[in-house]
Amino acid sequence: ERLAYIADHLGFSWTELARELDFTEEQIHQIRIENPNSLQDQSHALLKYWLERDGKHATDTNLVECLTKINRMDIVHLME
């Protein structure tokens, strides 16, 4: 799945992406607590919560915009 692929590449950027996707610091902290050992797991959790929260509004376009804002064009190019 594309989101899994994106999550695998996010690394430390997942928190920046979370902020761009309008997650609160508290929500970010919660994701860290729930997935303490792996940045990859934290990234996967973030994208899963985003899909659950935004439903049909959780679009590739939205994700590309946010990834561009945090200067992760490498991931944007991987999505093309």
Results as ranks from 00 to 15, higher is better:
R2S: 13
L3V: 12
L3D: 02
L3F: 15
A4P: 08
A4K: 11
A4C: 08
A4L: 09
A4R: 12
Y5P: 11
A7Q: 07
A7R: 15
D8W: 02
D8N: 03
D8Q: 15
H9V: 10
H9L: 11
H9Y: 02
H9D: 13
H9F: 03
L10Q: 01
L10M: 04
L10A: 01
L10I: 10
G11D: 09
G11W: 03
G11T: 05
G11Q: 12
G11A: 09
G11P: 01
F12K: 05
F12C: 10
S13L: 03
S13C: 03
S13P: 03
S13M: 06
W14I: 00
W14H: 00
W14Q: 00
W14M: 02
T15N: 10
T15H: 03
T15L: 14
T15F: 03
E16I: 14
E16P: 03
E16N: 13
E16F: 07
E16L: 14
E16G: 09
L17Y: 02
L17I: 11
L17M: 06
L17E: 00
L17H: 00
L17K: 00
A18D: 02
A18M: 01
A18S: 04
R19L: 11
R19E: 15
R19Y: 02
E20W: 05
E20H: 02
E20T: 11
E20V: 12
E20M: 15
L21R: 01
L21C: 02
D22Y: 05
D22Q: 13
D22G: 08
D22C: 05
D22R: 10
D22S: 13
D22E: 04
F23K: 00
F23P: 00
F23L: 08
F23Q: 00
T24G: 12
T24W: 02
T24I: 05
E25G: 08
E25L: 09
E25D: 13
E25C: 04
E25I: 13
E25A: 12
E25R: 07
E26H: 14
E26N: 11
E26G: 09
E26A: 07
E26V: 05
E26M: 10
E26R: 08
Q27K: 14
Q27C: 08
Q27I: 10
Q27E: 13
Q27H: 15
I28K: 01
I28S: 04
I28Q: 04
I28C: 15
H29T: 12
H29S: 10
H29I: 08
H29Y: 03
Q30K: 06
Q30F: 11
Q30C: 10
Q30W: 04
I31D: 00
R32L: 10
R32V: 12
R32H: 14
R32Y: 02
I33R: 13
I33W: 08
I33T: 11
I33S: 09
I33Q: 12
I33V: 10
I33D: 06
E34D: 06
E34K: 10
N35R: 11
N35S: 07
N35A: 08
N35E: 10
N35F: 07
N35H: 06
N35C: 09
N35K: 10
N35Q: 14
P36K: 06
P36N: 15
P36L: 08
P36E: 10
N37T: 07
N37V: 13
N37C: 09
N37P: 03
N37A: 14
N37R: 08
S38E: 07
S38Y: 02
S38I: 02
S38G: 10
S38V: 07
S38C: 09
L39I: 15
L39C: 11
L39M: 10
L39Y: 15
L39E: 11
Q40M: 15
Q40E: 14
Q40P: 10
Q40W: 08
D41V: 08
D41E: 08
Q42I: 02
Q42S: 15
Q42P: 01
Q42R: 06
Q42L: 03
S43Y: 02
S43T: 02
H44C: 01
A45R: 12
A45C: 04
L46M: 15
L46G: 01
L46Y: 02
L47V: 10
L47E: 01
L47A: 04
L47K: 02
L47Y: 05
L47D: 00
K48A: 09
K48R: 13
K48H: 12
K48Q: 07
K48T: 14
Y49E: 04
Y49Q: 10
Y49V: 15
Y49S: 12
Y49A: 13
W50R: 04
W50C: 09
W50M: 13
W50H: 06
W50S: 08
W50A: 12
W50F: 07
L51F: 14
L51S: 06
L51H: 10
L51Q: 15
L51T: 13
L51E: 06
L51V: 07
L51Y: 14
L51G: 05
E52G: 05
E52I: 10
E52K: 14
E52D: 04
E52V: 13
R53G: 06
R53S: 12
R53W: 12
R53L: 03
R53F: 03
R53V: 08
R53C: 07
D54C: 05
D54R: 08
D54L: 10
D54N: 11
D54E: 11
D54Q: 06
D54T: 13
G55T: 11
K56I: 07
K56M: 15
K56A: 11
K56F: 11
K56P: 09
K56V: 09
H57V: 12
H57M: 12
H57I: 04
H57W: 09
A58K: 04
A58I: 03
T59I: 03
T59M: 06
T59H: 09
T59W: 07
T59R: 07
D60G: 06
D60I: 06
D60Q: 11
D60C: 10
D60K: 07
D60M: 13
T61C: 04
T61I: 13
T61D: 11
T61W: 06
T61L: 15
T61A: 07
T61R: 06
N62H: 13
N62L: 12
N62S: 13
N62P: 08
L63F: 05
L63M: 13
L63D: 00
V64F: 08
V64E: 15
V64N: 02
V64D: 04
V64G: 06
V64I: 13
V64T: 13
V64L: 12
E65F: 04
E65T: 14
E65V: 07
E65G: 13
E65C: 05
E65K: 07
E65R: 12
C66G: 10
C66N: 07
C66P: 14
L67F: 01
L67W: 00
L67Q: 00
L67E: 01
L67P: 00
L67G: 00
T68I: 06
K69W: 03
K69S: 10
K69E: 09
K69V: 11
K69F: 06
K69H: 13
K69T: 11
K69I: 06
I70R: 01
I70A: 07
N71V: 03
N71G: 12
N71F: 02
N71T: 04
R72P: 01
M73W: 13
M73G: 05
M73A: 15
M73Q: 02
M73S: 15
D74E: 05
D74P: 02
D74I: 01
D74G: 01
D74A: 01
I75R: 01
I75V: 15
I75C: 03
I75K: 00
V76A: 07
V76Y: 04
V76F: 07
V76P: 04
V76G: 04
V76H: 07
M79L: 14
